[in-house]
């Protein structure tokens, strides 16, 4: 009776592998699968070729409401929510699919991946514990991640009304300088120089 179902176990291993490939930390795997810590560590080493990083996960809702992370988190969460609500997806199924869709969308542009898998998972958990919620931008009508119980009136998102220093990072400035130096008006310029600078993977 207490014998574990082989099929179930295989599915769990499959999920764990998929999550590891997408960049999950050990804590995510421990919470979302029934596999033992020892097996997860072995699995991680086999898939990634290195030991899993140690240490705590970032535990703050604040990161998700800062300018660029907020935009990326909001995109990811809207995709996740749509999958859960309208395609009858189970939670983790929806999560993995939403994360892949997010990566796919971001890779279409010259944007860096701002939201890593572990962050995305933390985001979902914060929503589940009602520490974060969605709010509608009164300007563009899009849904954005915000702290729970923040007043929803007059909310304007960070794309419609970016903070004054938004996006003026050193990396971007360098990329622009380099592009100016190249003189060529090619469209792919920024993409290439940003990629050469190494995409920030959270």
């Amino acid at each position: 009776m207490s014998e574990k179902s082989l099929v179930n176990e295989m599915l769990q291993v499959q999920l764990a592998i998929e999550l590891i490939e997408l960049g999950a930390r050990l804590q995510v795997l421990e919470t979302e699968t029934d596999l033992s810590r020892g097996r997860l560590i072995r699995l991680y080493k086999e898939v990634r070729g290195v030991s899993p990083p140690k240490g705590m996960l970032p535990f703050s809702t604040d990161w998700f409401v800062t300018w660029l992370p907020n935009i990326h988190s909001s995109l990811f969460y809207s995709i996740y929510r749509s999958l859960v609500e309208s395609s009858g997806c189970e939670r983790m199924e929806a999560f993995v699919r939403a994360f892949r869709l997010y990566l796919e969308q971001v890779s279409l542009g010259d944007d860096d991946f701002v939201l890593g898998l572990t962050r995305a998972w933390t985001l979902v958990r914060f929503f589940e514990s009602e520490m974060l919620e969605q709010v509608r931008c009164t300007c563009c009508g899009g849904l954005f991640v915000t702290h729970s119980h923040a007043p929803p009136q007059d909310y304007v998102c960070g794309i419609c009304q970016p903070p004054s220093r938004a996006g003026k990072t050193r990396k971007r400035r360098e990329a622009e300088l380099r592009q100016m130096g190249e003189v060529s008006g090619q469209e792919g310029g920024i993409t290439e120089s940003v990629l050469a600078g190494g995409g920030a993977r959270a």
Binding site: I71, S74, Q105, D111, L143, I159, G167
Partner: peptide, 17 residues
């Protein structure tokens, strides 16, 4: 800020909510 593409994607993703 070069965010038009991601903005458009976000609006479509939450259109039904």
């Amino acid at each position: 800020q070069g965010l038009a593409r991601i903005h458009a994607a976000l609006l479509m993703a939450c259109a039904d909510s």
